[in-house]
Nucleic acid binder design. Structure first.
Lengths: 250, 250
DNA sequence: GCTAGTGCACTGGTCGGACCAGTAGGCTAC
DNA sequence: GTAGCCTACTGGTCCGACCAGTGCACTAGC
């Protein structure tokens, strides 16, 4: 016979209550990006807590990327528009403490990027298609300009595609993981053999993908994009782990 | 001619320095999960900052899921093993403030889950295959037991698959997004028409997927899983948005 | 001798007050 | 009318204090 079901009471700290209330106000839209929170001294009155408690709450909210405070600002903390910064931070942490391999990260990109391309092939506007072509043109021009320009144009291409795919979650996740991958291999990048050949090949691949997108052949575009990413990154992945990447090639 | 390249100096607060140092120690492995940080009073000596500053740093580290502190604990804060809690938090925030639609979330699951299944079809062990079959058996048994048991068995199935796929990032992301989706539709779930038919259909689909995995036919298994997820969730997605989901069906 | 119980020394959580450097905007002096 | 100062705020940091917990060593009782 089970008696009255008591719920475990976890001791909830004062600053957590403050965090919850402010968080709720932001997520419900009662506070919009750009608006200001009351000053810390005002908040301590409203919440009936000390300033230390208010400040600990604000630190948490700041760590979650919801607000930002600036010393000397005559207004209170500013409510920020959503940025994937917190997502980025926790994924980076994940990558470090869980020791995610480069193979896993690249595989993740192959999956999500090709999905975005599949969707983009069906949903893209003509304008977006032109943007993609322009980005690839800039990649080609960057052959003369150097690594950074090439990389920037490449990022621009993938951003247009992700946007055209219409799924914000995919868009943000690809973006976050891409930056992690880029940082991981940036040091290896300089000393890599035959960078220029790799870049030329990458450009060809991108052009093939665009052609498939133009024809609205999503599955083909997706397949080509996976192949492109594999060819581009396989050299940086230990040979033993390349098998799991090839599993995604048709 | 560009002179010496000065970097912008952003004012770095004291507590941020503390966060960085502790974070580095954890991520580099100098501090392992289960180990203890020095007490707050000890940390204020080591870092030469006040206790308030130490505490703000600890709040940030706690928000990132790296440490936990318990009142009265004679030891310092405990270094935690990685949990996707922070990732979960930021994705949930993303879902709320960016107003991710259920369609986007389900689409994301279709993509990642089918990728995991594709990989699992090639990499799974016989033992994992048996686990999958057992999970589906429990789903069938749960027809008598109710919604919760069914859902739990379903989760177990997808967890085995994700594990068998061998990509921790995919595994964690599917897990996080699944819980968000589940919470989103949990209220609609009770009043849904013809739940039992949906559950029976879902079981059939799962069995088809297992069959394909058993035959190591990854692409088939992946396709079937996308179809399964579409059929299961389409009813909860506004008709106007179902098109983008169907774009993933072959 | 061993065990059960009691303090004690420590922990984190919270509070209040204080000072500093920085900012914005009103005010004053030119 | 404008340039420059002044003031009233802001957040960042520090300090000292108190409280309610916790674990452990020590002690009193068997």
């Amino acid at each position: 016979m089970s008696g009255p079901r008591f719920e475990p009471v976890r001791a909830v700290r004062a600053y957590e209550r403050v965090v919850e209330q402010v968080e709720e106000a932001i997520e419900s839209g009662a506070l919009s990006p750009g608006e200001r929170l009351p000053s810390e001294r005002e908040l301590m009155v409203q919440f009936s807590v000390s300033r230390s408690t208010v400040r600990e709450a604000l630190r948490v909210l700041q760590a979650r990327g919801l607000v930002r405070s600036r010393p000397g600002d005559p207004n209170g903390a500013e409510v920020l528009p959503f940025t994937p910064a917190a997502l980025h931070k926790s994924m980076t942490t994940l990558a470090r403490v869980e020791e995610l391999s480069l193979a896993e990260l690249v595989q993740f990109r192959m999956v999500l990027d090709s999905a975005a391309i599949l969707l983009a092939a069906r949903l893209r506007t003509d304008e977006q298609l032109a943007e993609m072509a322009e980005a690839v043109a800039r990649m080609r021009a960057a052959l003369e300009l150097g690594e950074d320009a090439f990389s920037a144009a490449d990022v621009a291409f993938h951003e247009v595609v992700a946007r055209a795919g219409g799924n914000k979650l995919i868009q943000i996740c690809t973006d976050v993981v891409r930056s992690i991958v880029v940082r991981l291999i940036s040091e290896k990048l300089a000393g890599a053999p035959d960078r220029e050949a790799l870049m030329r090949q990458s450009i060809r691949h991108h052009e093939e993908v665009i052609a498939a997108i133009r024809l609205a052949d999503g599955p083909l575009a997706a397949r080509l994009s996976r192949k492109a990413m594999y060819d581009y990154y396989a050299g940086y992945v230990p040979a033993a782990e390349r098998g799991v990447l090839r599993a995604l090639l048709d």
